[in-house]
């Protein structure tokens, strides 16, 4: 239950791109083909290990519906990482990325790590957005890119954990002020305050997840 850090994530993107499914896959390791529409925001949490440190990811799964936009915007604040999700089988969800990105950048802290995720990679036959397009968009806007499948769980763990690694690196570099909770990072009780300033010995590639608490 105890953790060294707690990172706040938000998942954003058009409705129906599979945000809640990604969260469910990550936290519960299961896939639910039919998911209720998210109202406002739902939460998920999971412990991961990076550099030998227990890190709790607290994930805010926002509603993609336009009606909730004004509400979800107020949740952006204090997020350390964001997963910006689009559906590779629906071009319009890709086209809306700019709006989502602007929203996120405007309402969150500037250091927030944003991961671009093209979901539903298992549905390659219905693909409308090429992987290269996603990569190009990510490059253009300084995002990390990944294609995932909530159904097959492909790259789902990696998407969440890589984001966490990047945040962790930023903490080591001193970019994030961990004492400011507006940055979306909390220090756990077990953590002694002298540790965060020590540079990590590099991220361990195979960070093991401890499963949902």
């Amino acid at each position: 239950m105890s953790y060294a850090y707690l990172f706040k994530y938000i998942i954003i993107g058009d409705t129906g791109v599979g945000k809640s499914c990604l969260l469910l896959q990550f936290t519960d390791k299961r896939f639910q083909p039919v998911h209720d529409l998210t109202i406002g925001v739902e939460f998920g949490a999971r412990m991961i290990t990076i550099d030998g440190k227990q890190i709790k990811l607290q994930i805010w799964d926002t509603a993609g519906q336009e009606a909730f936009r004004s509400i979800t915007r107020s949740y952006y604040r204090g997020a350390a990482g964001a997963l910006l999700v689009y559906d590779i089988t629906r071009r319009e969800t890709f086209n809306h990325l700019t709006t989502w990105l602007e929203d996120a950048r405007q309402h969150s802290n500037s250091n927030m790590v944003i991961m671009l995720i093209g979901n539903k990679s298992d549905l390659d036959s219905r693909r409308e957005v090429k992987k290269e397009e996603g990569e190009a968009f990510a490059r253009e806007h300084g995002l990390v890119f990944m294609e995932t499948s909530a159904r097959t769980a492909a790259n789902v763990e990696e998407a969440f954990i890589n984001t966490a690694k990047e945040i962790y690196e930023k903490i080591q570099e001193g970019v994030f002020d961990i004492n400011n909770e507006a940055n979306g990072i909390k220090i756990g009780q077990q953590h002694s305050p002298t540790n965060p300033s020590l540079p990590g010995a590099g991220n361990q590639g195979g960070s093991t997840s401890s499963g949902c608490c």
Binding site: A45, Q58, W60, I71, S74
Partner: peptide, 18 residues
């Protein structure tokens, strides 16, 4: 916290503040 009570309260606080 485990039952996401705290985070819901936090989110509600954010809405209230807004």
């Amino acid at each position: 916290d485990h039952y996401h009570g705290l985070v819901h309260l936090e989110a509600l606080e954010m809405l209230s503040k807004q």
